[in-house]
């Protein structure tokens, strides 16, 4: 059982991740933006953050760079539906470069998410 923060501006994605991971007995926190996530991270000892990358305001990339400096031990799973700014870049490889432990492309399978979480917790 771990404290997992799910960051996504899409409510449905948060719902799916929450419901899936709750079944695995994890404690789920939710944030709909980068700023909201930062606030939760300041208040809770989150072990794993699953974050979207393209979000209004503080993007997932901004969040990762910020948190990796503040909480280097935090495990981060970056998820993204692709696209990127003007479609020129794929954010997932970049997220990996700046500190994401794992990247999973949307649409993902819940099984993959669960497996990745399991592997991160196992160290």
């Amino acid at each position: 059982m771990a404290k997992i923060l799910v960051v996504d501006d899409e409510q449905n994605i948060r719902n799916i991740l929450r419901e899936s991971l709750k079944k695995e007995q994890h404690e789920i926190f939710e944030a709909s933006s980068g700023q909201e996530a930062s606030d939760i991270l300041d208040k809770h000892a989150i072990e794993i953050m699953i974050t979207d990358l393209v979000m209004p305001g503080k993007t997932g990339l901004d969040l990762i760079m910020e948190i990796k400096e503040k909480i280097p031990e935090l495990s981060i799973i970056a998820i993204s539906g692709g696209g990127g700014i003007n479609g020129r870049f794929d954010y997932l490889p970049i997220a990996q470069l700046i500190g994401a432990n794992n990247i999973i492309r949307k649409p993902f399978s819940i099984a993959d998410i669960k497996q990745t979480v399991k592997e991160l917790l196992a160290g």
Partner: peptide, 24 residues
């Protein structure tokens, strides 16, 4: 594709995610 991929994949993620939840 660049323009819609993100939103589209989010939608797909919702569809596929909820489907998996339902399957469960």
């Amino acid at each position: 594709s660049s323009g819609i991929a993100h939103d589209f994949n989010n939608l797909l993620a919702s569809i596929m995610g909820y489907t998996e939840l339902l399957q469960d």
